[in-house]
Design a protein around this nucleic acid. Structure first.
Lengths: 336, 336
DNA sequence: ATGTTCTGTCGAACCGATTCGGCGAACCGA
DNA sequence: TCGGTTCGCCGAATCGGTTCGACAGAACAT
């Protein structure tokens, strides 16, 4: 079922079949119809490997995801989905590689076996040796999140610092004077995870700008930790009247702790989330939060395709600062 | 940076380099060392497309996932992760295809462009035309879940009927006489979604076996629906003292409704979950539930590799019935 | 009638690996 | 010393596409 078979049955040469399919040279209508008929009959589709070999491109993108040991957040999952769908729309396939910071076999295979035309790298650390590796291979790539010195790379990211700062300003505008940040896990922060670090920076600066003092807490990415975290917060910092959190996975636990302690939201305590996908709607009351930029995956694919087409262009980057949707979880600071 | 370049620099022929790498013919130690040195120096890795073309296999598996519009459950996500990792361990890559019931371009490309050696198909419907399509192409495949007549196919599935039945028996043993099933969404049940249908069958049979009457409810896969569902259940069936649910995503909502209505678990109401991954631990009290069979992804890859190696063997299938872990959410039925 | 352009098609080279047959040299026993 | 193995390597064919140069014949201009 190769191109030679089609050519034989249609009574033409192999090159004519190829031209009929690609349209790169004129083929008479009569011939094209005959070829198409044979193709339809045999349900022929060109062999991807042969095409890749000759053309020097695979029509495939690599998507490097965090290893299974790390639980993907709802937003990351949405990102993977949108990348895959955007690629499918562009008639590209997506090769998945689970890989940690060290470059393992799967990553190496994809990168240096020329299996893909470009790579999208998720969950970048501020210092990331996969980026170094990709740079030296010359394979086009786009990172989600950016490294400490991102010059010369393409990236897409969420402006966590600004989002957190906006949340802080929103809360101070409502009269809150004691605000807490519930960050991601301590290990993530320590390991140089950009979003966690930039959230902290944005928080600290916004707090300072308003002349306040803030509390920042780390919290593991699960409900139990969220519950514990809120309890600790009420214990150790009873004067805190508002919370900003980038920890989506902790929200169910926070919710539970609130209900058990009979804390009314927003009467007793205001909460804002940064990028809570499903949980913003599911929280009670619905959570004031920045909208998840669902187009990030699509735009990452766009950038990568640009980069593949014109590798010598100046690398571009996109910083998303989605608007904050006011829902019911924030209100005026309670009177003392 | 192809095999010819390596051969030239090492002063041998291309075939010798190939044999040195594959070990399929003897190569002298001296020659092998010289070749290896050049390979290490240039960081050479064979071109995947050329190899695939010649060998007739791609060393790649296809994983067909539900389209992004459907929100993946936590368990499905875990499954994807374990498939990818198992494949990586076997030095195989995974090509992702988001696809619904209709065979779209992405699915067709993977299936008939010979881009993969085999396919793993998730979220099978009882009547699924992708299965039909795969059967006619002759490409090895394994399905997660099984169709109405699964003869002649390889599959891996969870025995939802038995699991639900076991939960029912556990609850009746504790004295419960009015038990409700919280199923997945009405649309899923209507569209012939196996797990939802088999859960219902297992529930109905177990209830009948004990001479009781049961209530079964459909519930969309989100917290809000779970909250609403529990409220309706208490309203319309106040005598129900125990719940069995296969709807993991609804659990946070159920939890919220329970706390708002001041219903004590398990004193007032017992709950068991079927396959709740993170939520079993995160629920308060921790949820009595069947353990998620984390090895399912790995075993699916194993089956597929077997199938690829020996396509004429009788197709095998695996039905997982993981044990139910008793946690704190079930207890004796309350006295009237 | 002759030269020129255009159209549609073909043949052959090529992409980068694998693999088979063959060949020279070394080695063996008789 | 000679025939037969064994060892190590090479050359060429092959996988299934794409693409370039060539070329026959029609159309057109002079």
């Amino acid at each position: 079922m190769n191109i030679g078979e089609i050519a034989r049955r249609a009574g033409v040469s192999r090159s004519t079949v190829s031209y009929a399919l690609s349209g790169k040279r004129a083929v008479s209508d009569e011939t094209r119809r005959r070829i198409q008929a044979v193709i339809d009959e045999l349900d022929y589709r060109p062999n991807a490997a042969a095409r890749a070999l000759k053309e020097g491109r695979t029509r495939t993108l690599g998507l490097v995801i965090p290893p299974a040991s790390l639980r993907l957040t709802d937003m990351q999952l949405g990102f993977v989905a949108s990348v895959v769908e955007a690629a499918a729309r562009a008639d590209l396939d997506v090769l998945l590689s689970p890989s940690g910071g060290d470059h393992d076999r799967s990553f190496e295979r994809i990168v240096s076996g020329r299996r893909v035309d470009g790579v999208i790298l998720m969950e970048i650390r501020l210092e990331d040796e996969r980026v170094t590796r990709l740079r030296q291979t010359g394979l086009p790539f786009v990172t989600i999140g950016h490294t400490a010195n991102p010059e010369g790379t393409c990236w897409v990211d969420v402006d966590y610092a600004t989002l957190v700062a906006r949340c802080v300003h929103h809360l101070t505008d409502l009269g809150h004077r004691h605000i807490a940040l519930v960050n991601r896990s301590a290990e993530l922060v320590a390991s140089g995870y950009g979003p966690a670090q930039r959230a902290l920076v944005g928080f600290t600066e916004a707090i300072a700008q308003r002349g306040l003092t803030g509390v920042d807490l780390c919290c593991a990415d699960d409900a139990t930790a969220g519950e514990e975290c809120l309890r600790r917060l009420r214990d150790e910092h009873p004067d805190v009247t508002a919370i900003v959190t980038i920890n989506e996975a902790a929200l169910p636990g926070i919710q539970r702790a609130l209900e058990q302690a009979r804390i009314a939201v927003p009467a007793d305590l205001s909460i804002t989330g940064v990028l809570a996908r499903h949980w913003a709607e599911d929280f009670r009351p619905p959570l004031t939060a920045a909208d998840v930029p669902t187009e990030m995956g699509t735009r990452a694919v766009d950038l990568l395709l640009e980069r593949i087409a014109t590798p010598d262009e100046q690398p571009r980057h996109l910083l998303f600062t989605p608007p904050i949707s006011l829902r019911g979880s924030t209100g005026p600071a309670p009177r003392r």
